[in-house]
Each structure stands twice: as structure tokens, then as C-alpha cells.
Amino acid sequence: MTSFRWWGLLVVVMVVGFSNTHAQEGVARDTSTAPPRPTPPQPRPNAEGATGPVPGVLPVRPTIARPDFDCGRPYTTSTTTNNNRGSSRRTRAANPQTGSQPDIGASQAGGHDSSEPLRVFCGASPISDHFLLTSATCVLDPDRPLYSVRLGALTTSENESSLNSRPVDYDIKQIIVHPEFDPHSTERYNDVALIETVDRIQFNEYVFPYCVTDQLPPPGTTVIGAGFGLVNETHSASHLQEADLAVVETADCQEQYQSAGQEQRLRTAYPKLLKNQDVLCAGFPGRGACKGDEGGPLFAESAGRRVLLGIVSFTGPCSKDALLPGVYTSVAHHIPFIDSVIYGLP
């Protein structure tokens, strides 16, 4: 990600689980000429309380949009980490041993060592102590079986491991792909999947779950992307990158692709184009998502918390002069799917 592409995206980067990256040395965040900031969606506390039940209040239907654990900000030793996930119903689980994909961060076959150089293929974002959100396209490549995800890494270089914030690798228990995503098509609708880890993710001041919202951000909302994807047509970032972008109205997004002669490429992924679909667009002149950022997060900072709004799904050319808004799977559109997996809801 050069000054144009905002990041190599991936706050979690399969590698970075979501870290407070912009506070870390060695992490570049391009905020020059930042777009205006309409009010982003606000995290909604659970009726039972953000960190636990409230006496005398009846329980409500569980949803990741109103979790019963703290989210979107660093954990400390006093942070409550209760996470009542209930039973889980699984749909189309991919076997990570035989071919899901390694694109979410570091694909480690067999044993893994967090001191080894990180190979980043995709991004992923933790939303609870066992689940991360990513794109379905990131986990369905049989040539790149995904075995583990790394959280907390700020650099892919073993020579600069001191810049990392205690990265940890987590083995994958299973991968659940949205039941309406078509792996045999080039379409990117319903491009979302959940990764479940074997062990509970240990949250700290660097790695913590995003808040998830069921509200759509209005056009013009300032959002942030982060990751290790390409910074130009040929080179990937060695340090986690971040940059401010703005939500682009989907009709305007389509027009930009059409004006740039990229409509056919866009239609290959989105035959019905973008309006009234499960996607968001975001970009800013000289900055944007590129190859290698897929699966990573698009988030807003609201009331001191990071709120996950989108998942990188489709990117245009990575040349600074030809950069187009990225297309993101809208998290708000897929709350029912997420809840069905995490809480076992129908």
C-alpha cells in the first residue's frame, strides 16, 4: 500500500487480529487530506449490558450486534471477557486440512512458530474469542490450505520482530462459508465466511474483538482500512498499513468503474452491479485496497471503539493513478448468518 492504497489491509490479517496498529511504531497510517467525518454507526450495548447481565432485565435474543462482552477497544487485566456463545449450527464447513485457504494471514502447514516470517495472503477480523470474519474467496482456494491464523503481528519481517505486539498463532477448528456464496462462480455476492479457532483467543491491549453493527454507514462516512496487501502493482507491505477512506455511494462507485473502462471486470464479480446489494464501496484519491487485502476489515472509530463495517472483497487496479474504490461485503447485511454460526440461531 503506497500513499495511494491505504494499507495492506488487514487489521487482523490473519496475522494481525486486530491490533491498535496506528499507535504502534513502524505502522504507517496515511491521514493526509482526510475526508470529512459524518457520524459513523454507533455500537449498540446489549439489553443485558455490554459486559454482562443486568439484574431485573429480561434476556434478549443474542446477536453479535449487541454482544455480552466488551468490544472495539483494548483489553486490560480488568476487562470482562465473558462471552456466552451458546451452541453453534454449522453450514458448509470447509475442512482446513484439505483445502480452505491460507490467504488469511499466515498459512502454516503442520506446526507453527510465531517467530517465523509471516506469509500474508488475506485478512481476517476477530469478532469474538473464537471467531474471525473474512471473505469466502479467501478460504476456498484448494491450492492454499489454511491451517492457522496469526493475531498481533505488525510486520512480516523476522528482522523487525521487536515491532510486533506479541503475535500468536491459532489453529483453525473449522471454516464456515455463507450458504449462498457460490464457489463455482466468479460472483462475489455473499462473500463472507467465519473462521473458528481451536483455542480461545487471548485479548489484550493490541488484539481485541471488533464491535459489529447492524447499521449501514451513510455515504461520506470516514472509515479505516488496514493490511499487508500490495502497495503498488508488484510489492506488498512489510508493515501493517492503515489509511482513512470515505464510504462511496454504490451508484457513484459503479460510475467510477464505468468511466475507467472497468465495468466488465466489475460485472464479472457483480453481474447485477452494486446497487441494492450486500456491498459497500470505500475509497479516497490516491488510497485504497489492493490485492492481498481481501478478507480484511473496513471499520469506523465511534465513541472510542472500532466498529467493523465491511470485509474487503473486490479491488480495482493497484496503480496509484488508476486506483478505484474498493468493494466490501457489508457486515450489517450478514448479521443473521453470523448469529446463526456463533449462537446457533435459526
Rank of each mutant, 00 (worst) to 15 (best):
P217G: 12
H178S: 06
V192Y: 00
E187G: 08
E180G: 05
H184E: 15
Y210M: 09
C211Y: 01
D214Q: 11
Q174V: 08
H235V: 09
R188K: 12
L240E: 00
H235R: 12
A226T: 11
V207G: 03
V231I: 13
A237Y: 08
V177F: 00
F228G: 05
D199W: 04
I224N: 10
V223C: 10
P217M: 11
G225I: 12
G225E: 10
V223F: 06
D191H: 04
G225Q: 11
S238M: 05
E187F: 07
R200K: 11
L194R: 00
L216H: 15
I175F: 00
L216P: 15
Q202C: 07
T186Q: 13
T197K: 06
Y189L: 03
I201C: 09
S185W: 07
D191A: 02
S236Y: 03
P179S: 09
S236W: 00
F208M: 01
V177H: 00
P218C: 10
Y206T: 09
L194H: 08
T213I: 13
Q202L: 11
Q215W: 04
I201W: 07
P209Q: 13
E233F: 11
Q202E: 13
L216Y: 15
I175C: 02
P183L: 14
H184R: 15
F228P: 02
R188C: 07
L240K: 09
Q215A: 10
P209T: 14
P218T: 06
P219N: 14
T221D: 03
N232K: 02
Y189V: 12
H178N: 07
E242A: 06
A226Q: 09
T186R: 09
P179C: 10
I176N: 00
H235N: 06
S185T: 15
R188Y: 10
V231N: 05
E187P: 01
E233V: 09
F208A: 03
P183Q: 14
S236T: 06
F181H: 08
N190W: 11
H239C: 04
Q202W: 04
E187M: 04
N204H: 14
E242H: 06
E205C: 00
V192H: 02
C211M: 10
E196V: 01
V207P: 03
I201Y: 11
P183V: 14
E233T: 14
L240T: 01
F203N: 00
E233N: 12
A193D: 01
D191R: 02
I175H: 01
Q202T: 12
Q202H: 13
S185C: 14
V177K: 02
R200D: 03
P219L: 08
Y210N: 08
D214R: 15
H178Q: 05
P183N: 15
Y206W: 08
S236L: 06
Y210C: 13
P183C: 12
I195R: 07
L230P: 04
I195M: 07
A237S: 14
L240F: 04
L240R: 03
L194C: 07
P217H: 08
L216N: 14
H239A: 02
T234C: 05
V212T: 07
E205P: 03
E187Q: 08
N232L: 06
H178E: 06
L240Y: 07
G225V: 15
H178L: 03
S185D: 13
S238I: 08
N190R: 11
R200P: 04
